[in-house]
């Protein structure tokens, strides 16, 4: 197997994202009804890497995602994004991190183009510029002509594309995506997935992509991490465009085994 295994030698200092011995307990630790969603997780994501996190439902993927995004604080351990703590240095990440959520999360009172402009407003971009940028992204995602539609007048797939445009418009270096295509039909999802990979590669971004689909993980990642409940790494594999079809089949089989175990 030529696919290089986990890059443990990666120095955490140059890692774009570093999780060191991270645990997350919901509820009071040790108390009744408390739940350890993440258990002493170690994970480093290199700059420019596209990491797909794979795991069964409820294994703690979104919890990890929220900790990297700085929306939840780990119970113990360290989370660093570009060397900073995303939870306590919250404002330091303005414009540095873009997130595509599982659901589109568009502001219903804003039109498509106004939704896309949201991140640029936080960055105090001049109104004319941000409108231009937003329009370009909408056109890139095939939504030209729908700039002034409110979300309720768009289909689910169109809304999800608006939310992808919103994430890309800030041109952040780190992209976090929580099952962004799971609500879409397979052919639309496939198209968007290809588009997404292209956008990330073209712009040299670091991306963490959460999914529970093996095919999606293989299509998107240069590296796949399989999580078992409570979020611990059960399998970690990296590959690239040189990885042959047979090797990919092997990896797929191995992931299937790990998930089923």
């Amino acid at each position: 197997m030529t696919a290089a295994l986990a890059s443990e030698n990666l120095a955490s200092a140059d890692a774009a994202i570093h999780l060191g011995n991270v645990s997350k307990v919901f509820g009071k630790e040790g108390a009744d009804g408390s739940y350890r969603a993440v258990d002493r997780l170690n994970l480093d994501v290199a700059r420019g890497q596209m990491l797909a996190i794979l795991g069964k439902t409820g294994c703690g993927k979104s919890t990890i995602f929220n900790m990297i995004a700085g929306l939840t604080e780990p119970t113990s351990g360290t989370v660093r994004v570009s060397g900073k703590n995303p939870f306590s240095d919250f404002d330091a990440f303005r414009g540095k991190m873009a997130i595509v959520f599982q659901s589109d999360r568009l502001l219903p009172w804003r039109t498509a183009i106004q939704n896309v402009q949201l991140g640029l407003e936080m960055l105090d971009a001049p109104p004319a510029d941000r409108k231009d940028t937003a329009r370009q992204w909408l056109i890139k995602l095939g939504l030209g002509g729908h700039e002034d539609d409110f979300p309720h007048a768009l289909s689910g797939g169109m809304r999800q594309r608006v939310s992808i445009a919103r994430a890309f418009a800030t041109n952040a270096d780190i992209l976090l995506c929580d099952e962004p295509f799971s609500a879409l039909d397979e052919s639309t999802a496939g198209k968007l997935r290809a588009e997404f990979v292209r956008l990330v590669k073209e712009n040299g971004k670091t991306a963490v992509f959460i999914t529970h689909s093996i095919s999606e993980a293989l299509e998107i990642g240069d590296r796949i991490v399989v999580l078992k409940r409570p979020a611990m790494i059960a399998y970690d594999v990296s590959f690239n465009t040189d990885t042959s079809a047979e090797e990919r089949t092997l990896i797929r089989g191995r992931i299937g085994e790990v998930l089923a175990a």
């Binding site: 959520f101 949201l118 936080m122």
Partner: peptide
Amino acid sequence: DLTEMVFSFRPTRMKLFRVMIAP
């Protein structure tokens, strides 16, 4: 969900109010 989405863009308190809370 929407509030966290807006938070993820790191708004100032003023902007959070204008963009999310008020509407």
